[in-house]
Design a binder for these strands. Structure first.
Length: 273
DNA sequence: CGGTGGACCTGCTGGC
DNA sequence: TGCCAGCAGGTCCACC
């Protein structure tokens, strides 16, 4: 489900509703998602108020009193939404935070590829989940020079390179395809064989695509919603992803689907070189 | 070393 | 209608 834009949309939607709210009760309804759920650590959040919501890569960071942070990753199918406290438990509702404001914040994740854990806030950067992460694509660290430098000498396809979270975080399958389409770069091109000018275009395309997707509330292919259950609109703006056989918006050649590293890649054979 | 492929899960869709 | 194959927005790890 979620790449960087979806997690950012989620963060923005929850921020005003969660900041200052107190967690009255924590319900751990499943033993594990992708990793075991630490029931005791999660329940120690009871009684604490939320101080701030942040995001790092595709992780949502919920800071609470006592210098601890609840870390949520939505995997492929996760949703993290507010619901009335009395609403019946959803299928695959693995974790729920009952708030003092009479609402329930629940993590629903059919495929259980998501992650939820608690850490001391100060130690997050050293946590194994975070320590290898690369730069934030919407921050100042992401520049064409940086990407060109990291790509030097590498024969890996540029699409895989863009999706490598050790280089740059938050770019998943949808937005990698879209950024490559927007900049006219062929997904199979070797990362080390892209010139300075194209790196500038591609870097700009990454920012543009992610930024627009955030503005439009994310991409709702199936079931993504923000914290209040609102779907996104960016799916209607997609130019490559999921459009096999559809004429390219630029050159009218049909969009093609190939498989790279086990993932579908959609691109235009006419205008991506 | 770097890159691909499989594993982890459930659910949905399309073809027969 | 039923069944089965294939596919899905992520990440990690083993294996060439």
């Amino acid at each position: 489900m979620p790449e960087l834009p979806e997690v950012e949309v989620l963060r923005r939607s929850l921020e005003p509703r969660l900041t200052g709210a107190r967690i009255a009760r924590v319900e751990v309804r499943s033993p594990a998602l992708r990793e075991p759920l630490d029931r005791r650590a999660l329940r120690r959040l009871e009684g604490c108020a939320v101080t701030r919501l942040r995001r790092r890569a595709k992780y949502l960071l919920v800071d609470v009193e006592g210098d601890r942070t609840l870390v949520i990753h939505l995997g492929m199918s996760g949703r993290f939404t507010l619901t009335p406290a009395a609403a019946p438990a959803a299928l695959h509702e693995h974790l729920a935070f009952h708030l003092d404001r009479g609402e329930r914040l629940r993590l629903v994740d059919p495929r259980r590829f998501g992650v939820a854990f608690v850490r001391p806030t100060a130690r997050l950067p050293d946590d194994p989940h975070f320590v290898h992460l690369g730069v934030e694509p919407l921050g100042e660290e992401l520049t064409a020079d940086f990407l060109a430098g990291e790509a030097r000498g590498r024969r890996t396809p540029v699409k895989s390179f863009l999706m490598d979270a050790r280089i740059v975080v938050g770019v998943g399958n949808i937005y990698a395809c879209e950024a490559l389409w927007l900049s006219g770069v062929h997904p199979r091109r070797a990362a080390g064989r892209i010139g300075a000018r194209r790196w500038a275009e591609l870097t700009e395309a990454v920012r543009t695509v992610l930024g627009r997707a955030i503005e439009e509330g994310g991409t709702t292919l199936n079931d993504f919603t923000d914290g209040e259950g609102n779907a996104g609109y960016f799916q209607v703006s997609l130019s490559a992803y999921g459009r096999e056989g559809v004429p390219c918006r630029r050159c009218r050649r049909p969009i093609r689907r190939i498989v790279q590293a086990g993932r579908s890649t959609f691109y235009c054979p006419g205008c991506q070189r």
